[in-house]
Write a protein that binds this DNA or RNA. Structure first.
Lengths: 92, 92
DNA sequence: GATGAATTTAGATGGTTGGCTAAATATTTC
DNA sequence: GAAATATTTAGCCAACCATCTAAATTCATC
């Protein structure tokens, strides 16, 4: 599992905003895209990055594609960050 | 305060490793640099990025420069990430 | 199965980044 | 204050990234 991909994904503010949206509720790709002032294709690219990182998942739903936050992977990232400080000892 | 800088800083694996080291104990720049297979100057660059992001602080100590984790800023990042999911509501 | 809507993929481009070496700066020691 | 050590800054380059427009894909509908 590539933690690196998740952190790279989190490095972009638009992607963090997308995650914030998805944390509230699942959304179709178009619903997400229309909330940003950039091209749909660009948002699609961001969604791809988030998906590759495992931070979001998607399912086709008829003519739309629904995205949702993958809380498991997301929490992994949070847990890693917390362990860095809480640890004090050796741990991956 | 630029949260963006912190996330950009976290995007690089070498910088995350530096943070892991500093979470255990403060270290001189040279002590940090010698743990990585890249040039001292490159590590120095990473330290600069981490410092600009506020994630680490440094103080000169004689001929050395001591680096330490800025736990306040670090925890801010962790808290932000937790709030995204725990929130369910609106919060910066 | 052609038309239209939703979404992704492809290809191009300018900006950013991480690495390098070499030079500069700061501090201690002689 | 010159020599030695510690660290950063400067300048360069290849790789990567965010964005764009245009084309392709996928599904629904007529």
């Amino acid at each position: 599992m590539s933690r690196d991909g998740a952190f790279k994904a989190l490095a972009d503010p638009t992607r963090r905003e997308i995650l914030e949206l998805l944390a509230q509720k699942d959304l179709m790709a178009g619903e997400i895209a229309e909330r940003f002032p950039i091209a749909f294709a660009s948002v699609s690219h961001h969604l791809g990055v988030l998906k590759d990182a495992g931070l979001v998942a998607s399912e086709r739903e008829g003519q739309f594609i629904r995205y949702r936050l993958n809380t498991t992977v997301y929490q992994d990232v949070v847990r890693y960050l917390m362990n860095v400080t809480k640890g004090g000892g050796r741990r991956a």
